[in-house]
């Protein structure tokens, strides 16, 4: 049995009067792809941002390898952050930098590696993701699919242990969506990282996931394998997975 690498216990988060997370419990296993699904606006991205520390919970506990992230020292927190990468929904590429500089940024800003090693690492990632020709271009000069690959290259260049993907296929056509899913799957196999993916691509995303969690009304209402969720007969899960029922606009 795989051990949980990250555990969220009874996480609560409010934005003013909006109680986005109302006791979220979730465990993420090492070396697996865990997909978080749920209606738009249920706080899936907020959940990811809590995992990486971009947002802080009002109450509850997040543990990483059993260690409470809230009690980590500055040094431990830095070491913890260095094991993560985050791929943003809108890529968050630096539009005034070239593609090469964007990908090299996490390495060049820390001066841990000499320049030739950084160049080699960036070149390798760019070749693996088939974006070698774009090095001197700027993000605005690339298509949506290419930008996703650049964002993925930047996320992978530090050889992270955990990669968080926030709706990586937003705005892509069906062919490119499949391409991104395959890309996540094959690179996860290649590099062995733990992945957490927020996605609306049901059921396509299930083909690459080992675990699925569904967020609804501020709670995780389901955690299990893709097969289990596909066969789940709980009404709101079933209707969401199979795209049935009415949508309530609040």
């Amino acid at each position: 049995m795989t051990s949980p690498l990250i555990e969220l216990k009874n996480i609560h988060k409010k934005f003013g009067t909006n109680h986005v997370m109302q006791g979220v419990d979730l465990s993420i296993n090492e070396g697996e792809i865990t997909t978080i699904i749920g209606k738009s606006g249920t706080g899936k991205s907020v959940l990811l941002k809590h995992i990486i520390g971009l947002m802080h919970q009002d109450s509850g506990k997040i543990t990483f390898s059993g260690k409470d992230t809230g009690t980590m020292t500055h040094k431990e927190r830095r070491a913890f952050k260095q094991r993560f990468s985050y791929m943003f929904q809108e890529n968050a590429l630096f539009d005034s930098m070239t593609i090469y500089d964007n990908i090299a940024l996490p390495l060049s800003e820390k001066a841990v590696f000499p320049r030739d090693i950084i160049r080699a690492k960036v070149k390798t990632r760019m070749e693996q993701l088939d974006i070698g020709e774009t090095a001197s271009k700027y993000p605005a000069q690339l298509s949506g699919g290419m930008k996703k690959r650049v964002a993925l290259a930047r996320a992978l260049v530090t050889e992270p242990d955990i990669v968080l993907f926030d709706e990586p296929t937003t705005g892509l056509d069906p062919l490119r969506k499949n391409g991104v899913h395959k890309m996540i799957h094959s690179y996860q196999k290649m590099f062995g990282f733990t992945a957490v993916v927020v996605s609306h691509e049901i059921p396509d995303i299930f083909t690459i996931s080992q675990k699925v969690a569904m967020l609804d009304k501020g709670r995780i209402i389901f955690q299990g394998t893709p097969e289990e969720i596909m066969n789940c007969e709980v009404e709101n899960i079933y209707s969401f997975i199979h795209g049935k029922g009415d949508v309530e606009f609040e």
Partner: peptide, 13 residues
Amino acid sequence: ISEQIDALETMDI
């Protein structure tokens, strides 16, 4: 607003 500053934080910059 385009999350570039958040991206820096996630890169531990």
